[in-house]
Simulated assay, not measured.
Amino acid sequence: MSNQTRIDYRIRLGATIDCARFLLQQGLPFRGHDETEDSKNQGNFLELLQWLCNHNKDIEAVSLKNAPENLKLTAPDIQKNIVNCIAVEIINSIIQDIGDKLFSILIDELKDISSKEQMSIVLRYVDKGCVIERFVGIVHVTDTSSLSLKEAIDGFFSIHGLSMTSLHGQGYDGASNMQGEFNGLKTLILRENECAF
């Protein structure tokens, strides 16, 4: 690979990442209904990348129509990989911010469009006198039994280096149909850490 090819790739990748970061920061969808080249609206990601090309000749020279057919960096899988990388960095930053502080978890269950069970996790902690709540993810669970939810929490803690001994609070959606399972989950966590009331 020539030096110029590497430079072109970095410019193209940088533009792709910048578009993804902007859309994530604004909470906007990436995809459009019709992403073909003759579409009047290809979706936010491709339209934003085209806008960047129109306003930056260096990006235009190596992106979209001027990129090699197999290296445009616009495929949905590429977009998802970039989003996943950004999510990992954000969660790592949150975990680093928590450090050795005490924290609480807020849990709720939900189903995705295909009715698969999921559990949303929010970490709550105090930093410089301010209460901070950070959504850190959705974990797929096999079912909504208290044991399954506890295993998912243990797995999440293990992956992110969180300690159950630093957990000093639990919160669940009281109106949820999961209240019985959450009471069981609360008990399982309290057996492991009496301070996590």
Rank of each mutant, 00 (worst) to 15 (best):
M1R: 07
M1K: 09
M1H: 10
S2D: 14
N3I: 14
Q4H: 10
T5E: 12
R6V: 12
I7W: 12
D8R: 08
Y9S: 09
Y9G: 05
Y9D: 11
R10S: 08
I17D: 03
D18M: 12
R21Q: 13
Q25R: 14
Q25W: 14
D34W: 08
D34P: 05
E37N: 10
E37L: 04
N41E: 09
N41M: 11
G43D: 08
E47R: 05
L48C: 13
Q50F: 07
L52F: 12
N54M: 11
N56E: 11
I59V: 14
K65P: 05
A67G: 03
A67R: 00
P68C: 09
E69F: 09
N70F: 09
L73R: 07
A75T: 15
P76C: 13
Q79L: 07
N81D: 15
I86K: 01
I90P: 02
S93C: 03
I94R: 03
I94S: 02
I94P: 01
I94W: 02
I95N: 02
D97P: 00
L102P: 02
L102W: 01
L106P: 00
L110S: 14
Q118T: 15
I121K: 00
L123G: 01
R124K: 04
Y125H: 01
V126N: 00
D127E: 11
K128A: 10
C130S: 15
E133C: 10
R134W: 02
F135Q: 14
G137Y: 02
I138C: 14
H140L: 12
T144R: 06
S145N: 12
S146A: 14
L147W: 05
L147T: 13
S148E: 07
S148M: 08
S148F: 15
L149F: 06
K150N: 07
I153Q: 00
T165N: 11
T165K: 10
S166C: 11
S166I: 02
H168G: 08
Q170P: 07
Q170A: 04
G171E: 03
G171V: 05
Y172K: 11
G174W: 11
M178K: 09
E181N: 15
N183V: 14
L185H: 05
K186Y: 12
L188W: 03
I189Q: 04
L190S: 12
R191Y: 06
R191I: 08
F197Y: 06
